[in-house]
């Protein structure tokens, strides 16, 4: 049974995404974690391209991998974190974390089990292209779009207020 090129690319991308995501959680060194997370973002951007959503893919790279992760790395590099001098968390905290993480997984699985996730249909292959996305955002979804922009504005004002010297 031959696999199509798309299936092979999907497999490779998923493998990269999973391995690097595991690297984020399992790595002892926080800088390695951040670098693994960047690789994960690239793999996810690859998935977006596979869904013909090139705009989303590039914006994902610019915003997450290009800006937010740079700031993460910036902070990590300055903090000089070290696994030897890092204070160990108490055991009960670790168990609590594992239990709540597991509970979240159960809730997510329960929520997604019955949800109909529409796969890429023939009529929606063009939806991720910038022209269609822009039209849709500024007609059908204009109210949520503007509301989220107000949210960003308030976050920016908040950052300026906190950052200002009194």
């Amino acid at each position: 049974m031959g696999m199509s090129t798309q299936q092979i690319i999907f497999m490779v991308l998923s493998l990269v995404a999973l391995v690097s995501a595991l690297g984020v959680v399992l790595s002892k060194n926080p800088v390695t974690s951040v670098l693994c997370l960047i690789v994960t973002f690239f793999a996810i951007a690859g998935h977006y391209v596979m869904l013909n959503a090139q705009f989303l893919a590039v914006v994902h790279i610019i915003v997450y991998a290009g800006a937010i992760m740079v700031l993460f790395l910036y902070v990590m590099m300055l903090m000089n974190l070290n696994s030897e001098i890092e204070p160990q968390k108490r055991n009960w905290l670790k168990y609590a974390g594992a239990v709540s993480g597991g509970a979240l997984l159960v809730v997510l699985v329960a929520a997604l089990r019955d949800a109909s996730v529409p796969a890429l249909s023939e009529s929606s292959v063009e939806i991720g292209l910038i022209h269609n996305l822009g039209k849709l955002l500024f007609t059908q979804y204009v109210v949520p779009f503007e509301v989220s922009s107000i949210l960003f504005l308030s976050a920016m004002v908040g950052a300026v207020v906190i950052g200002k010297k009194d």
């Binding site: 790279i61 610019i62 991998a65 790395l73």
Partner: peptide
């Protein structure tokens, strides 16, 4: 069809070489 954004994305990656 996203040529300019592609460039922008690659440019924003450029800083990693220097930082790392």
């Amino acid at each position: 069809n996203i040529g300019i954004l592609f460039i922008f994305g690659v440019v924003s990656m450029g800083v990693y070489g220097i930082m790392i």
